[in-house]
Each structure stands twice: as C-alpha cells, then as structure tokens.
C-alpha cells in the first residue's frame, strides 16, 4: 500500500518536472531567438540588462502564452476526465455536450449579427476584437450549459443526457454552418482563425483573471474526487454509498462546462486535449482513482499543451501554427499507441 503511494507521488513529481522542463523550453524558444542566459536573467529580475523589446517578448508574450497553455491544458484535461467519468464513456470530452460548439455558435452569431446590421463585415467594425469574440464564445457556451443543466433535472439516465448533448452539438454546429453560409467573407475568415485556437490571446493584464478562474475550477474538481470515484461505480452504487446523484451530476456538468467555456472563450475551441489526456493519465498511473487521476490529468494536460505550444512556435516552422491542428497531430497517434498497447496487455492477461 505504502509502496504504491510512493510510486504515485514519484510519478506525479516526474510529471511536474517534465512540466517545468517544458515551461523552460517554451520560454527559451520562439520565433525570435533569445539566448537562454538572457531569458533567465530577465526572470531573475535583472531585466535592466536586456533590451526593452526582448523584455516585452518575454513578459507579454512567451510567459503568458506558456501559462495559458499550462492552465488551459490542465483545465481541458480535467473537464474531459469529468465528462468521461460522468458518462462512463471513454469517448466523452468537453466538446461532446455541445459546449464548445455553443461557443462557436456564439462567435458565429456575433459576427453574423453585427455584420448584417451594418451591412459591413463585422470584422471591419472594430468592436469585434478578441475580447468581443471571447465574450460571444463564453455566452454561447453558457447558453448550452444552462440548457443542459435545466434538462438534466428531468432526465433519469446520463445516457439520455449524453444523446441530447450530442444532438445539441449537431444543432449548434448546423446553425453555425448556416450562419457561415450567409456571412461576409471577412467574417468567415475571422471565424476560421478563431477556430484554430491559440494560447496567445491572453496578455499579462488578463492572465491573473484567466488563471484564477481556471484554478478555482481545478480546485473544486479536486474536492469532487471522492464523488467521481463513486460515480464510476454506477449511479445506483453511488447513490447507495450516500451520494446525491442529481446534485453531483449537475455540479460536475457545471464544472466541466465552466472550465470549457472559459478556456474556449480565451483560447478558441481546442480539440483533443480533453479527450486524450485522461486516457494518458489512466495509462500512466494504471488507476481509476480520481484522487490520483485529477492531479495526473492536470499535469499531463499542462505538459501536452506546453509541448504543442512549443511545436507550434518552433523557429524553423515560421510563426504560429494553429494550435488545434498540433494538438490532434501529436495527440491522436499517441492515444492510438496507448490503446494498442493496452489491447496487447489485455490479450496477454486473458
């Protein structure tokens, strides 16, 4: 028992180290070459030694971007884990209930409405800045989330909720498609770019709010570890063990939705991390215990997001590749590998 504990703690520490290492790489590398020595001295408070432009690159861009990658990676991973446990479905992820597509609809709706009122492409109208898009995304995500919470009280089975959620995703997706069809070219371009996702949309001014809001959600998720363990046993066992299923279901939905909505609002619909990371965490730690899985998912999510952010900005690759493609590009083969490995194991066991 104790040995097991030790192994878990050591593994978590190793992940943390990997995260710190990735963070350093993210600070060291970018499209502009800054010597690691300069980076370190900038963060050790000797900022007077380096040029103002480099200070801005580090403080306003590289550092916030790395922090956003960490926080968004951790948040999406935990949101995915919550969904997979709640629905006891390994394919669930933050986007499955239409929360992300709700965010997309919000953005499309805002761009379209503004565009059709003025006869102008909304992107030409100034007020559709990144903050405007964030608000629209957040509003769209909340809209879907509240609808889900509303109906969740009338639903007996989570599978029904899952199906309704998927229907909502299709519904919002097709509405978005319709809006795109009737939109101005420039707005479609804006929508496409928003859909690529980015960790660079948050500056040092908004960073504390973004980080704080996600941290709060992550903290609450840790408090739910025991409930999640019970839910994994099935509703009836969970209920029999004293869990208020309806309340907890709503709480978990709210929490996953909250994390997804905020992250999507600031970083766009970032795919895959939410789906893949819980599997990675389970496989690394060989456990279903959420007291381990939640911190493990947070750390793995942060490491993966940092890694993707690094790849997307590699100097040779010329600028910022869309983060959304990178996460899937790196994540998908990894998950396939994990699954195949698992399959082999279970064949050996049986």
């Amino acid at each position: 028992m104790n040995n097991l504990h030790k192994r878990v703690v050591i593994s978590l520490l190793l992940l943390l180290l990997a995260g710190l290492f990735m963070l350093l790489l993210n600070l060291f590398f970018g499209s502009v070459t800054i010597h690691p020595k300069e980076v370190i001295s900038a963060f050790l408070g000797h900022s007077a030694d380096i040029a103002e432009s480099r200070r801005i690159i580090l403080y306003e861009f590289r550092f916030p971007q790395a922090i956003v990658a960490i926080v968004a990676g951790a948040g999406l991973a935990v949101a995915g884990l919550l969904m997979q446990t709640l629905f006891r479905n390994p394919l669930a992820d933050p986007s499955i209930l239409g929360i992300s597509s709700g965010a997309s609809l919000g953005v499309a709706l805002a761009l379209f409405l503004a565009g059709s009122f003025s006869g102008q492409a909304a992107v030409n109208m100034g007020w559709f800045t990144s903050i405007g898009l964030s608000m629209a995304a957040f509003a769209g995500a909340l809209m879907v989330l509240f609808f889900l919470l509303m109906i969740s009280g009338r639903i007996k089975h989570v599978v029904t909720l899952l199906i309704i959620g998927i229907m909502i995703a299709y519904l919002t997706g097709s509405l978005t498609g319709l809006l795109r069809y009737y939109s101005q070219k420039e707005d479609i371009q804006a929508f496409v770019i928003w859909g690529m996702g980015t960790f660079s949309g948050v500056g040092s001014a908004q960073l504390p709010f973004f980080t704080g809001a996600i941290m709060l959600g992550l903290f609450v998720s840790i408090l739910l570890s025991k409930s999640l363990n019970m839910i994994l046993l099935g509703d009836r066992y969970a209920q029999n063990l004293g869990l208020n299923i309806k309340f907890q279901t709503r709480l978990i939905l709210l929490l996953a939705g909250y994390l997804t909505a905020i992250i999507t609002a600031y970083a766009g619909p970032i795919a895959f991390i939410g789906l893949a990371v819980p599997h990675i965490a389970r496989n690394l730690f060989k456990t279903s215990d959420h007291r381990i899985l939640i911190p493990a998912s947070m750390l793995s999510g942060a490491v993966l997001a940092l890694f993707c952010n690094l790849i997307a900005r590699l100097p040779g690759l010329d600028g910022n590749l869309p983060i959304n493609s990178i996460t899937s590009l790196i994540g998908a083969p990894f998950v396939i590998w994990v699954m195949l490995r698992q399959n082999k194991q279970s064949i050996l066991e049986s």
């Binding site: 801005i56 306003e60 861009f61 761009l111 909304a122 992107v123 559709f128 800045t129 990144s130 903050i131 405007g132 898009l133 804006a190 770019i193 928003w194 980015t198 660079s200 949309g201 500056g203 040092s204 001014a205």
Partner: peptide, 11 residues
C-alpha cells in the same frame, strides 16, 4: 481585424 487585434497588438 478580429483575432488578437488590437488587444494582443496593444501588448
């Protein structure tokens, strides 16, 4: 332009 401008540019 919508994405990251001018909020990100301001930074």
């Amino acid at each position: 332009d919508p994405m990251g401008i001018p909020e990100t540019l301001k930074r």
